[in-house]
């Protein structure tokens, strides 16, 4: 059973201690939320886990092997990332962009394989992008671009999804339906995800486990029922947060 293990990670950026001794382990089929206030180090942590940035001490291991010891291509077949900043781009169409998700997999030089095309088309269809497939990326709205980025991730078919603010630019209907779809896709392939988000309610709805980053390198992690309490959240965000409703459909709001 594969797993993604963060082991006593510590990281300091620009003299600010983000994590001192951060450890948690993402098993297959688990859905993790990563919460913390602005600048708490959510994006950095995602980059560290993906091996895009090195941590000061500690280790990140995929299947018991440090991510730094994988080649980038091997890692890209296991771990897929949705970046917070969209796709800066020279001209390209939606379909061409989603096809890039197939890059880590072996491809022929002169031909696009039928399987790859089929996977990309299916991903477009899942995120209501089929109509847009020939459109230029720079002619799309923010929400459409976000869906393209997500479809590219789906075409990549990794086992671990690291999502950095997946709900960015999405309207409330898409926020809900896309996360539901992602969850369904992941469940079908026994995948898991770590979702960094500023939307506590989205995390409460879709995640089973939570990492909550606090000040001075502290953190809390565990089942969402334990972590997502008004006390913990108030501490993490430095403002008073209250809860409406009970466990299944809790809603948190600041006062």
């Amino acid at each position: 059973m594969s797993s993604l293990k963060i082991q006593s990670a510590s990281l300091t950026i620009a003299d600010k201690l983000l994590y001192a001794d951060l450890s948690f382990q993402i098993e297959r089929k688990e859905f993790w939320g990563l919460l913390g206030k602005n600048g708490a180090g959510k994006t950095s942590l995602i980059h560290c886990i993906a091996g895009l940035r090195s941590i000061d001490s500690g280790d990140v291991q995929l299947n018991e092997i440090s991510v730094q010891d994988y080649s980038r291509a091997e890692l890209a077949r296991e771990i897929g990332i949705l970046f917070q900043d969209g796709l800066e781009t020279l001209p390209a169409t939606v379909m061409e962009t989603v096809m890039l998700g197939r890059h880590p997999h072996v491809q022929s030089m002169f031909k696009d394989s039928k399987d790859d095309l089929e996977i990309a088309r299916h991903a477009l269809q899942q995120f209501a992008l089929t109509e847009l497939s020939e459109r230029q990326i720079d002619s799309l709205s923010g929400g459409e671009k976000q869906r393209v980025a997500i479809a590219m991730l789906i075409a990549q078919q990794p086992n671990f999804f690291l999502l950095d603010e997946p709900s960015n630019h999405l309207d409330i209907a898409f926020q809900f339906s896309i996360l539901q779809q992602l969850k369904a896709i992941l469940s079908a392939r026994n995948g898991s995800m770590l979702m960094a988000t500023h939307d506590i309610n989205l995390a409460a709805r879709f995640c089973d486990k939570i990492v909550l980053l606090l000040e001075n390198g502290d953190y809390l992690c565990g089942d969402k029922m334990e972590i997502l309490t008004p006390e913990n959240l108030s501490l993490a965000y430095g403002c008073e947060i209250r809860q409406l409703g009970e466990e299944g459909l809790a809603f948190f709001y600041p006062v």
Partner: peptide
């Protein structure tokens, strides 16, 4: 031609390229 696929990916940005398995 040998690097053409990597060029395709890099034109979407360095982070995206790394995420897709390119040794940047």
């Amino acid at each position: 031609l040998l690097f053409s696929r990597s060029l395709n990916v890099l034109s979407r940005g360095e982070l995206v390229a790394q995420g897709l398995g390119v040794n940047i």
